[in-house]
Amino acid sequence: MLRVSNLSRRLGVGSLGRFVTSPLLQKTPVQIFRFNSSQNKDVYDLWIQSIQELRKELNDKPWIPEVSLAPPGQARADMRDTSHLQWQPTQEQLEQIAELKSKPIPLKNDPLIEHCTNLIMKDGLKYKANQYLSKALYLVFLQKRKDPVELLRGCLDSLGPLCSTKTMKTGFAKNVTVPVPLSTRQRNRLAFKWILEGSDKRASKDFSVRLAEEIISVIDGKSSGFEKRSLMHKQAALHRAYLKLK
């Protein structure tokens, strides 16, 4: 029975993957001419024979890795055997594991960055959205020379409205508008959407540049989003009479 590893060995080829480096490719024209002569006919025969054997093996029986990948002189390979790795954790590594066990698993991503990325995202292109945000944050860093994530957190906190208004049905003729408090996520969402609106009015064709400029204007307190925020607060204050305090 011919095995995959045996085939590659017989053909003098490193592996059977994409990157097969055939000895043919290393030859000069003169050598190729000689190679093509009848002396090397047996080499071609070996190729054809090997391919036929492999094809027969794969067609006759279902693919069983244990059998096909077995080393020479052994019927089946032990797929669970890891002894060949010969690896044991060191004492230091064991201590590190013990130390880390008590700690909570850290979050993979910053929730704020994740949220903003999702707000930018269009058609499910999350990586692209993240690239836009990352470039914008890099430009913010270049201007301000501070951690841009913290700056973004701060500017969303300052821009986000504290409360909004909601129309409630009373069951009578008239509906009433009631002020409602907003959660942190809702505040961040509104603030970042205002930033996106502001960025759309800017000149650059590059979205990351427009976004960076708008974030910087929020940090400097010049963004048009602050007017929207105060308008929302005024609206809520107007309807404060409808607040239901339990």
């Binding site: 270049l142 020379r145 009015k201 800017r202 650059s204 064709k205 590059d206 540049v209 400029e213």
Partner: peptide, 17 residues
């Protein structure tokens, strides 16, 4: 308002701190 350049030009040419 704002810069009309793209990212690579803004980052490499603007006077930055």
């Amino acid at each position: 308002p704002g810069n009309h350049k793209n990212f690579i030009n803004v980052s490499s040419t603007t006077l930055l701190k």
